[in-house]
Design a protein around this nucleic acid. Structure first.
Lengths: 339, 339
DNA sequence: AAGGTTATTGAAATCGATTTCATTGATGTT
DNA sequence: AACATCAATGAAATCGATTTCAATAACCTT
């Protein structure tokens, strides 16, 4: 238990602590000979450098904070894995912070930057307003955001190509003969949602179809939200034949509602979601969905935040967009689920 | 960016750093008056104590390491949430370590204890052998294990009542008329699996049924593992009418195999899994499963590990068992899925 | 051989807080 | 009034490493 300190190693090896430190950080200015002496002493004492002493002096924790709403959500879990993989490769550890949907907690976690518990923070789909994030980033802390594009702020953000998602989905549905397509948004004010809706509209326009505001509703990215939104639309007017849901959870809500109304998927109603979560392949029919490269999204941003920490972030760049891919399955195309 | 230090606050408030520190840690020996002066100075400078300085001196990081195989697995995610909730309530943060199935990485993460990056570590379903874990715990580090019961080692472990799981499931299946029940184990050598198998055997015995070793196979807790194991059993002899899978993933593998063989669930084959993961309610029929209180499991052990850190762990106790509950659904009982 | 480099090493300062110990002034006791 | 007690504060040591700067020794130059 009684762990040894650098000075103990120094004494045993008959050198100064400075030399031990040099060996530890393999500085080139130590003789092979002294290096060996020190290494032997380290072994003998089973010495491990105390992280806090090291961090205090070097003013680095080599730790990244990752603030997510809920690690239980597979969308977040995958992003975290991407971050962790990249971070570990660059010798960083990650501190997980579950904000549990509370803005307060998010803010609280940001203060880990202030007290130097972490060197940088990655916010995954934060609830915080741009302004709140900005006030932190302004102080010169390393912050990055995933899943949301920030306005003018000079903060690295990584997102998927949301315009393309909207465009791809509508194009696919139109190709399958749909002319009246409902759109279930998540949170409507996020820049991402705006992009996606824009792609959706332009896709319609290209097909020579009108955009119908009455066929737009929103949920909160949850199954229940999707369920309620679909019901509202359907009760209003049932003259649409396809639904594009902002994510798969909402698509699952649509499934539930359709099952209750006795609406056949995909014959009477085509459904497309986003994220391509695992469950989409276990329901029947499988849910067509847009696969987002979440792992890469996380890794990319980890990279940028670490760059930012080291001051190597290219000043111009701040928005990083990664390509997504629509995976057509049985929910939007007859017979697409090969059995 | 230039953050202020305790001495800056001291100067502004016209007191010594010691007094500022006292205010920070609300020591009772400061006058209201000086306290106010200090508080004002802190505000003025927007001062936050540097975590590293604090940690170095106090020899505490207030951080718990959590080593899991993969946070993407909902089983782990739920446990982590339980740990985090409890840890946060006690002012601890948690450092997530994804071991990605690599024993090496697990060992590596354990060394975070040695270098004092964390005050304690919780291993979730570790791959490490008892001996490997023991060699660390022996040094007096705070370690806890979830999801596996360790032998004689004096390490807090929390698990569900595996004997009861085996017993409950077999009793349920027997009650539904099954007499030849296959058992798909996960990893067979874990103490947990042994307990569960024991409960299974005793349940059979109570019903006056023989235990048939030929109806036992094993996978690796994965869908593919369950698929392969079921196929092996079925090809060998198809004279069983129910399968008890070590977890829901394996049960999903059984579903896949049954679908390929054209075996009707539950008419020709009843299926029961463990964990009650979300997907079990989205397949058809829904999969009967044993719900484990994972959140509580995590919280409980976090509590114990923190006790251990503070030296308040009751010496006698080391195994903590939490009750589980079988949830009967359509995969093992006709009509159980109310539509 | 004298003076100048260069390669190794060590002494001491430093990171930013906490904590021990000593000091001061005020209060209470007899 | 003399002394003990106590509350509030500060000076300085400390946690365990890194890093700057100075010192030494060894090697070149010419």
């Amino acid at each position: 238990m009684k762990d040894s300190k650098i000075i103990d190693v120094a004494r045993i090896a008959n050198v100064s602590p400075a030399t031990v430190s040099r060996v530890l950080n393999d500085s080139p200015l130590v003789t092979k000979e002294t290096q060996n002496k020190v290494l032997k002493a380290i072994q003998e004492l089973n010495y491990t450098p105390n992280a806090m002493g090291k961090q205090l002096r070097s003013r680095k924790t080599m730790t990244l904070g990752v603030v997510v709403l809920d690690i239980g959500i597979s969308y977040h879990a995958e992003i975290i894995k991407g971050i962790e993989q990249k971070a570990n490769a660059m010798n960083y550890k990650i501190l997980i912070c579950n904000s549990q949907n509370e803005k307060m907690k998010e803010l609280e976690y940001l203060s880990l930057l202030q007290n130097r518990t972490v060197d940088g923070i990655i916010l995954v789909s934060p609830m915080l307003s741009d302004g709140e994030i900005a006030s932190f980033a302004g102080e010169g802390y390393a912050i990055g955001v995933i899943g949301r594009r920030l306005g003018h702020l000079n903060i690295p953000c990584s997102t998927t190509d949301n315009w393309k998602i909207g465009h791809d989905v509508v194009t696919h549905l139109v190709a399958n003969g749909h002319r009246r397509i409902a759109y279930l948004n998540g949170y409507e004010d996020a820049l991402d949602s705006i992009d996606r809706l824009q792609g959706f509209k332009e896709g319609l326009a290209e097909a020579g179809l009108p955009f119908l505001p009455t066929l737009v509703d929103k949920g909160d990215f949850s199954e229940d939200g999707g369920y309620a939104a679909f019901r509202r639309l359907w009760e209003e007017s049932s003259d649409f034949t396809a639904v594009f849901a902002a994510n798969d959870e909402m698509a699952l809500g649509v499934y539930k509602a359709c099952s209750e109304y006795g609406i056949a998927i995909p014959d009477r109603m085509a459904v497309v979601g986003v994220d391509n979560i695992r469950i989409t392949n276990y329901v029947s029919p499988k849910i067509s969905s847009v696969e987002q490269p979440l792992y890469e999204l996380g890794g990319l941003l980890a990279d940028k935040v670490i760059d930012q920490i080291n001051g190597d972030l290219q000043p111009g760049q701040k928005d990083f967009v990664i390509n997504s891919r629509l995976i057509v399955k049985g929910s939007s195309q007859k017979g697409a689920d090969s059995i």
